Amino acid sequence: MCPHKPRCPDAEASDREAARSVRRDDRVGVVELCNGVLLWDDTGELLPSGRITPPRRPTGSAA
């Protein structure tokens, strides 16, 4: 449960990345958000349900 006021967006909401950061691991490049979402530096996500969203930011050059 989110303790923030106003509450952070749910992990399935389209604005889920607006949730507050609760932990960061710079070695791996991941942030845990209040709603349980793991957000990687390349913008990929792992939702609490186990669903993965691919990165939206380009990570390399087109070949």
Rank of each mutant, 00 (worst) to 15 (best):
E17D: 13
A18K: 15
G50P: 01
E12N: 12
A19R: 00
E45N: 08
V22E: 08
L46P: 00
S14C: 04
A13H: 13
I52V: 15
L46A: 10
P48K: 06
G36S: 08
W40P: 00
D26K: 11
L46H: 04
D41L: 09
D41G: 05
A19F: 00
R57A: 14
L39G: 01
E17W: 10
P48Y: 06
G29A: 08
P58M: 04
R24Q: 09
G36Y: 07
R23H: 06
G44D: 13
G29Y: 09
V37F: 02
C34A: 10
G29F: 08
R51D: 04
D42N: 15
E32M: 06
C34T: 03
G29I: 08
S49N: 15
A11M: 11
R16E: 04
L47V: 09
L47K: 15
V30F: 04
L39H: 08
G50K: 04
R27G: 13
N35P: 02
S21T: 12
A19D: 01
D15G: 10
L46Y: 01
A13F: 10
R23T: 05
L46S: 05
D26C: 08
P54V: 14
P55G: 08
S21G: 06
V22W: 00
G36V: 02
R27V: 11
R20W: 15
V37N: 00
G44R: 15
I52Q: 03
G36H: 05
P58T: 07
A19E: 00
R57G: 12
V30Y: 01
L39W: 03
D15N: 15
A19P: 02
